[in-house]
Amino acid sequence: MAPDTPAAAVPDRATGPALVTFREKIGAYVALTKPRIIELLLITTIPAMFAANREVPSLWLVLATLVGGTLAAGSANALNCVVDADIDAKMRRTRARPLARHVVTPRAALVFGVVLGILAVGFLWATTTWQAAALALTAILFYVFVYSVWLKRRTSQNIVWGGLAGCMPVIIGWSAVTGGLGWEAWVFFGVIFFWTPPHTWALAMRYREDYAAAGVPMLPVVATEHTVIKQIIIYSWAMVACSLLLVPGSSWIYAAAAVPAGLVFLALAHRLHLQVVKDARSDDAPHGTSPLAGQFMSLFHYSNLYLTAVSVAWAVDAAIGLQTVGWPG
């Protein structure tokens, strides 16, 4: 994420866009795509392709799918920036984004996002399968219109259902290889679905003042700390249980990573719950920065590591092959 821009460098709204160099303008357009989020999405795409092929897939197909997926995610993120421009300007965490700083106009960002989306769908259709292209289009439209426009400002469950868009790279990657969908793809889809609320709510606990100021009813804004951590624990258990459904169809390699990674996730969540109860904050009003914000951020950072570890283990397991490794004994 780009560092906050000094107040002196932020133009007044009445004066219009800031004067920037060509290099800064290019950087602003790249920032609209939210590269760090794209990296996390692509981490789940490659393992799905490996698992669908049961070995290392064609490198050209992997590259084509990653390029198309990057364009699709960049499109959705850029269009999200257009919808959330007013919110981003009010939040410390996002006020350095291009639209919030008036480095890029809303019209330009809208055109940029639409063009990226068209390129993504066309490229995936031409280089992979029409199913992958259709799923990418569905993901873009869902993220922009269902999550960004409809859910985000209306319900505390926004990220639960809006997070479905973040699950799409798995089934896009699978369909790019096979033209269809296997049960393993749906299982990992479920892993990401249940992973998204703990991941997002842990971060929101650190920035709930920002969300409150922007009028976004994230769960940590409208619920007590105790309620939030209980919800995190429920989704964490569902996530780990879902991840273990892949064990029967994998070798010991996947299990050796998924089981301990899941146990650590659950341990962190339960430890945080005990801290909330011990500090007797369960009845506090949900306002201000949580005194346990640091611990919530630790869970947030580990959630990234967890998803990466499980995804890589799934890919390695598929690349080596069950016939080669098998279960010990």
Rank of each mutant, 00 (worst) to 15 (best):
A313I: 11
A315D: 05
V310F: 09
G262E: 04
L322V: 04
H270Y: 14
S298Y: 10
S311Q: 15
L299P: 07
A309L: 12
D279N: 13
L292Y: 06
S298P: 06
I320L: 04
S282T: 11
V264H: 01
P291D: 10
D283H: 11
S298V: 09
V264N: 00
I320K: 09
V277P: 05
D283L: 10
T308S: 12
M297W: 07
L305G: 05
R281D: 09
V277L: 13
Q275F: 08
D283Y: 08
G321S: 06
M297T: 04
H287Y: 10
L299T: 11
G294N: 02
I320D: 03
L322M: 09
T308H: 11
A293Q: 03
V310N: 03
Q323K: 03
V276K: 04
L305R: 12
S311K: 06
Y302H: 05
H273A: 13
A269V: 11
L322R: 00
T289K: 07
L268W: 12
Q295F: 05
L266H: 12
S311N: 13
P291T: 00
P291V: 04
V277N: 12
K278T: 13
L292W: 02
Q295H: 07
Y306F: 10
A258M: 04
A256E: 00
V259D: 00
V259C: 01
G294D: 04
A293T: 06
